[in-house]
Design a protein around this nucleic acid. Structure first.
Lengths: 233, 233
DNA sequence: CAATCGTGTTCTATATTCGAACACAACGTT
DNA sequence: AACGTTGTGTTCGAATATAGAACACGATTG
């Protein structure tokens, strides 16, 4: 068993500033940040100045600290080729089915939405925005991702509860959810397994439709295949 | 004149790793990263382990380093309320005009796309993705942003060249571009100035249309007002 | 079976960071 | 006006977290 050498304190604190700012969702003062990090204010100050040099944070008119747009530019580099191939497919699906369609990937015990495309008259429009994150144990995309993992890698609290449901999804080839992540909406997702990359899924959400879940799944699977094809040749 | 105390070396190097990964767009080995940072490999190693702890980077199956989806989750916190208000408006515009519609904000000398919505029947789909970044001196959104700034804050090389064009855009209330950022496409943008926040703009791109630029601008301005209203009461 | 390329670990001198203290500006309150 | 408050930015010595060399190891490749 390899030892676990200590991480970099300074870098870790700098990143925690970004995390704090991201979930605060409002501009914070340096003091507030220092308190949340439990470091001396002068430490937070120097770290902030460094983040500012790299434009990852900025100040609003009153001097309070916020995340900078440059963060979005960095995030655009995440799974760049997957996004490039997936987005046109998501768009096609969204237009054909008239439903919001999105791409989720596994991150630890979470499912993170990387891209999402909305059709006209989007009902659940604020539903799934890029960057949205929730436990992989809830929602259709999460379960579609779980079908790709050995149960030993599931979050501890999910094994008993989801065993049957995920098994069924695996043989069926798609997963569904009702009322889990977003109240009253249903979701259908198919797994997207790529060589060497983290497990992913593409999914749609809808409230009520004349289409059968299985029919939706067929359409999703077609795009999943196209994406896989494009990326793995 | 305040002195400029040195920035945090460790944090700065850690961020440079993220920057290097974002623009490499392919997985890198630790050695490659160390070379690009011009640091000893063991330094890069410890920094990487820290980034990994925070899930900002991950490894693919072969052990190479990539940006992690968590970066996207962080980026979702950028201008959170602006995005929340803008996205429904962008969607409405995209569907009404049948054009890709996006939100750009100023970052230093660059214009960064924060969100973009494509219409139902998208023609040129890969136009402007979230996170896209280019000089504020090119493209319609950039010029719409420049109309909000005193010329003293323009990038040095833009003052002479763009003076007349931006002045005209300012009195007209909208900016245009042909063939600047993306070949053959035209763009129309209106400024979006928000109290205490960085200058922004909303814009559409199109190839050829029966609509007049001025008519498009009217529609854009309506949404800009709605967003301003919602955020500033 | 070398040679190469990659990862992960251990170690000490020292450069870097920490955190207290100081200086100052803007705002409200009494 | 004097006062406390709340915020920022700067200085500096001591302490420690970091830097970078060296070592150990496993895959691949020739």
């Amino acid at each position: 068993m390899p030892e676990s050498p200590p991480a970099s304190q300074t870098l870790s604190r700098g990143i925690r500033i970004l995390e704090v700012l991201a979930d605060a969702r409002i501009p914070l003062t340096i003091d507030e940040i220092a308190v949340r990090l439990e470091v001396h204010r002068s430490v937070a100050y120097r770290l902030l100045r460094t983040l500012e040099d790299h434009r990852l944070v900025g100040r609003d008119a009153s001097g309070a600290v916020t995340l900078g747009p440059r963060m979005a530019a960095l995030a655009a580099g995440v799974a760049h080729d997957l996004q490039a191939e997936a987005i046109p497919e998501l768009t096609a699906i969204a237009n054909e089915l008239g439903m919001t369609c999105f791409l989720g990937v596994l991150d630890g015990d979470d499912c993170i939405t990387l891209a999402s495309i909305e059709p006209r008259h989007a009902i659940a429009s604020v539903a799934q925005r890029p960057g949205a994150r929730h436990s992989v144990t809830v929602g259709a995309p999460g379960k579609a991702i779980l079908t790709q993992l050995p149960m030993s890698e599931w979050p501890g609290d999910a094994r008993a509860a989801l065993h049957a449901e995920v098994d069924e999804a695996r043989v069926r080839g798609y997963a569904t959810s009702h009322d889990e992540v977003i109240p009253t909406v249903q979701s259908v997702a198919v797994p997207l397994a790529l060589r060497g990359q983290r497990p992913a899924a593409i999914a749609v959400v809808h409230v009520a439709t004349d289409l059968d879940d299985a029919e939706i799944a067929v359409r999703l699977r077609r795009s999943a295949s196209a994406i896989r094809e494009a990326l793995e040749g």
